[in-house]
Amino acid sequence: MRVRKGRVLRIVDGENKFYLISRDGKSWLPGGSVLLTNKQGPHIGIAAVSRPEISSYQKGYFGTVQAGILLGNRSEKNDAPFSFSILQGYRLNAWFAPGFETGIDFFDDGVMPLHATASFFFSTGQFTPILSVKGGWSIPLAREKAVNTYYSDFYYNNSYYGGLKLETKGGTSLNPEFSIMRMMNNDVGWIFSCGYRFQRLTYQQGEKGDTNYYKKERDINRLSLRVGLLFR
């Protein structure tokens, strides 16, 4: 029997039938039935089986782990912030899966997004386009931040520019995303994503109605590029 170079096969017995099994564990033969002859002469028939079909669809739980960068409007501290996300989802059918996502995004300061997600799959094959809509709220990792402001905004008639430490608050977080997934087998696949990332950061001193009350909001718009793994 001739075997393609680099392919290592072994023979196993399952339910009184013989199969050729590749080293990676996939039961398959490249052609029709195969006939082996030993030195004594008897022939052993080996049934041919096809390569298992790899599908992106499997009803039930799946998860993704991705890392990447957030490109866009610059800051003095971070031109391309790092982004890391973990998504837990449940495939209801071939095309739709709700889920929940969290992780860490580093803008000037780190935030932990808490996103509800809706993912739409456009194929059940090995390569699959995915459209995901993610949105919710982000929790700041730092309790306070030093910002520059005009003190005349709330203290003095004569304005001057200076620093002020404000309490960090959560903010609206959105991340619509388009992805391409390639399954390596029926359990694990690569996923490449590109999307739009919006984050509102809020800084505040005191409460509304206080004499020293001050609030500042900053909106950040970024292009997100991430790569990671899907598993189930």
Results as ranks from 00 to 15, higher is better:
residue 173 S to N: 13
residue 184 M to Q: 12
residue 24 D to C: 02
residue 67 A to S: 15
residue 223 L to H: 06
residue 26 K to T: 04
residue 125 G to V: 00
residue 90 Y to E: 01
residue 202 T to Q: 08
residue 189 G to K: 09
residue 136 G to N: 04
residue 187 D to N: 15
residue 221 N to E: 05
residue 191 I to V: 15
residue 193 S to Q: 07
residue 31 G to W: 01
residue 174 L to Q: 07
residue 92 L to I: 14
residue 214 Y to T: 09
residue 134 K to P: 04
residue 172 T to P: 10
residue 103 G to Q: 01
residue 231 F to V: 08
residue 193 S to F: 12
residue 177 E to F: 15
residue 47 A to V: 13
residue 118 A to D: 00
residue 160 Y to R: 07
residue 206 G to I: 09
residue 77 K to M: 03
residue 61 Y to C: 01
residue 144 E to R: 07
residue 75 S to W: 01
residue 90 Y to P: 06
residue 73 N to E: 11
residue 152 S to K: 06
residue 204 Q to C: 12
residue 35 L to A: 12
residue 187 D to P: 12
residue 160 Y to W: 08
residue 187 D to K: 15
residue 172 T to M: 15
residue 57 Y to I: 00
residue 7 R to I: 01
residue 71 L to P: 00
residue 136 G to E: 02
residue 99 G to R: 00
residue 22 S to E: 10
residue 191 I to G: 10
residue 9 L to H: 08
residue 61 Y to S: 02
residue 130 I to E: 07
residue 97 A to K: 04
residue 87 L to K: 14
residue 50 S to M: 03
residue 97 A to T: 02
residue 95 W to S: 14
residue 111 V to R: 06
residue 51 R to W: 07
residue 129 P to I: 07
residue 106 F to H: 12
residue 95 W to E: 09
residue 76 E to N: 09
residue 22 S to G: 08
residue 173 S to R: 10
residue 149 T to G: 01
residue 98 P to Q: 02
residue 139 I to M: 07
residue 35 L to C: 10
residue 154 F to T: 03
residue 42 P to N: 15
residue 51 R to P: 13
residue 85 S to K: 13
residue 137 W to R: 03
residue 109 D to G: 10
residue 224 S to T: 13
residue 163 G to R: 13
residue 84 F to S: 10
residue 47 A to G: 11
residue 131 L to Q: 03
residue 17 K to A: 14
residue 35 L to T: 14
